[in-house]
Amino acid sequence: MTAQAGRDLLLKLDLNGTASFQTVAGLRARRIAFNASLVDITNADSAGHWRELLENAGTRAASLSGSGLFRDQASDAAVRSLFFEGSVRPWRVIVPDFGTLEGPFQVTALEYAGRHDGEVTYELALESAGELGFTAD
Rank of each mutant, 00 (worst) to 15 (best):
T121H: 07
D76G: 06
A78D: 12
F21Q: 09
L53H: 01
G58C: 03
H49P: 00
E102I: 01
L69G: 09
T18P: 01
D45K: 12
D137R: 13
A62W: 10
A5Y: 15
A5L: 15
L82C: 13
E85F: 04
L54C: 09
Y112E: 02
A57V: 00
I94G: 02
L132S: 04
N56L: 15
V120F: 13
V95F: 15
L15I: 05
G114E: 14
A44L: 08
A125E: 10
H49C: 07
E119D: 08
V107G: 01
Y122V: 05
V107A: 01
I41A: 07
T100R: 15
N16R: 11
T108I: 00
A33V: 05
T18G: 11
A36R: 15
G99P: 02
G58S: 04
A125Y: 03
P96H: 09
G6A: 08
P96Y: 10
T100N: 08
G103N: 08
S75H: 04
L101I: 11
S20Y: 11
A61Y: 06
N56Q: 12
E119P: 12
S81R: 12
D97P: 06
G130R: 01
L101H: 15
D72H: 02
E131F: 08
S63R: 03
D45V: 02
L27T: 06
R7G: 09
E111L: 02
L101Y: 10
F34H: 14
G114H: 13
L38F: 07
A3S: 15
E119G: 14
S81E: 13
A74R: 07
G103P: 01
T108G: 00
T2A: 15
D72E: 05
Y122L: 08
F70L: 03
P90D: 15
P104V: 00
L54K: 12
Q106P: 00
P96D: 03
E85Y: 13
A3D: 12
D14Y: 04
E123Q: 11
